[in-house]
Design a binder for these strands. Structure first.
Lengths: 144, 144
DNA sequence: ACTTGTTAGTTACATTTTCAACTAATACCC
DNA sequence: GGGTATTAGTTGAAAATGTAACTAACAAGT
């Protein structure tokens, strides 16, 4: 069975992608976890509100491709810590507009800077052309 | 703050990698989950034993970069289902050599074929050159 | 107005993951 | 040989995730 010889686990794209994602995320994840006691979903919610402005939980779900229960719990946790606030929409009282508090804004800016530094550091692993191809392929795979 | 405008979440490599990894894994994951009731760690253990031959849990941990508790539980589950068997080493009775049963071999071969087909399908998303760059970059990021 | 259906978001429960403590076997070293 | 430290692997409790059922508000058709 010659096929078998050719197929290494490191050539299997899902595996390779997961390993790379884990490795690439690990450093930054450790940073916001130990420094801000923040979870990954929480960081994503924070980033969305900080970067794109106030929006509802539903919008975050769609943009970040997160399940609504994950977002719900992240928002609850961020709310408890006064990082995120909410206000019920008057025209549709099912929806709540979410936004960052002052404290949330500060935290966001710090984390944004850290993220940019981290990303720049990662980018040193490959040339500009490689980086461009990489991002292009990843976006295609992620359906972005 | 012009920096802020430049930094989109989809340009943040850890985020992009995670999205791509999730998307790329989803289809295959669904397959082995619903068809074989298999978890991701279990599939990895199965693959390692099937592709690289018998080895100890420790070796699987190192090669697959999995925590020992995850491997321990995956092996326990695969053992219960007679997919994996084990034999204590005589020269060091702490270690156990793990290997696939007949049934495990069959399952591995089926899954291997499915994985190869799946990988080939994913590869149609980009050109040969792109694919080569992608894999090269991912390996570097994953420290492989 | 009233039934039926849909949507935003929460909650409860089962599964999975993580972390720390544990057991059993070996190694080191005096 | 006997104490201490490591190592392979397991187990238990806590945290996180996934899934499904739920509540509350709105929409649409009659």
């Amino acid at each position: 069975m010659t096929k078998l010889d050719r197929f290494d686990l490191q050539d299997f794209l899902p595996y390779l992608l997961n390993q790379a994602a884990e490795d690439a995320s690990a450093g930054f994840q450790a940073f916001y976890k130990e420094r801000y006691g923040m979870l990954r979903t929480e960081w994503r919610v924070l980033f969305h509100l900080g970067r794109y402005g106030e929006m509802t939980a539903k919008e975050i779900c769609e943009r970040a491709r997160l399940h609504k229960t994950k977002v719900s719990r992240a928002v609850a946790s961020l709310g408890k810590r006064r990082i995120v606030s909410r206000r019920t929409l008057e025209n549709d009282r099912r929806q709540e507009m979410l936004y960052l508090t002052k404290q949330g804004e500060i935290m966001f800016k710090e984390l944004l800077n850290a993220a940019q530094r981290y990303d720049a550091e990662l980018a040193t692993s490959f040339s500009a052309e490689e980086g461009a191809v990489l991002r292009r392929c990843l976006k295609r795979l992620a359906g972005l």
